[in-house]
Amino acid sequence: MQKHGIIRLENVSKEYDLGEIKIHALSDINLSICNGDFISIMGPSGSGKTTLLDILSTLLRPSKGKVFIEENDTTEMTDEKLSLFRGKKIGTIFQNFNLQVKLTALENVMTPMWIHKVPKNKRIPLATKLLEQVGLGDRLNNKPNQLSGGQMQRVSIARSLAMNPGIIVADEPTGNLDSKSEKQVIDILMNLNKVQGKTIIMVTHEPELGKLAPKRILMRDGKIQEYFGFEKCPKWIKSNETIKESAKK
């Protein structure tokens, strides 16, 4: 697979205005991520790692700076355009899974499909395939309360893959899991990176887990303190097709 740049942060800062107090969650962050990277973001509590991940996933807009994804400036996009862009380009995995409790595993995986108008006849086969891929082919019709923590997180991973995004962001994906489930989830993520070439960005506070990623960022006080294993992306490709799709909407 030919490497190229996929995400670029330029002088990104995030401030929270709480009346008299201003909190600087992120200060002047610069970061380049290539396609197929597996990156872990580590750091102590309050260091800004989750804020950085939220900005990378475009769920949060920076106070200053630019966020380019596939060379599209997401900070200039309207909310509507950004929602569509995010839904198609970025898959999100949450620490607490965020599954819809009244829906089955299959229905949870199909949620992004109705939002993005995937033809109805393609949804069940696709969702089934994704659940089989994470080892839950026999749990299709189970609701979250009938699944273990590890299984719920695997449903969440399958859901993040529903629109076949190139980027997967995971916020403490093993934070609520036992060691056996933790291993299963990490294996799936590594497999997605190695076999399918997905770009994985994972926040974790566990150093051992973080070290499994070839590229690592250590954060402290809203700044990137150290970069491990980073190299320049050989080139940057703009996905014009995405812009056209978004504009059409």
Partner: peptide, 13 residues
């Protein structure tokens, strides 16, 4: 939470 999730998955306002 469900609304937040739908937005995260691409649903707009």
């Amino acid at each position: 939470k469900e609304i937040g999730l739908l937005k995260a998955l691409g649903a707009n306002k």
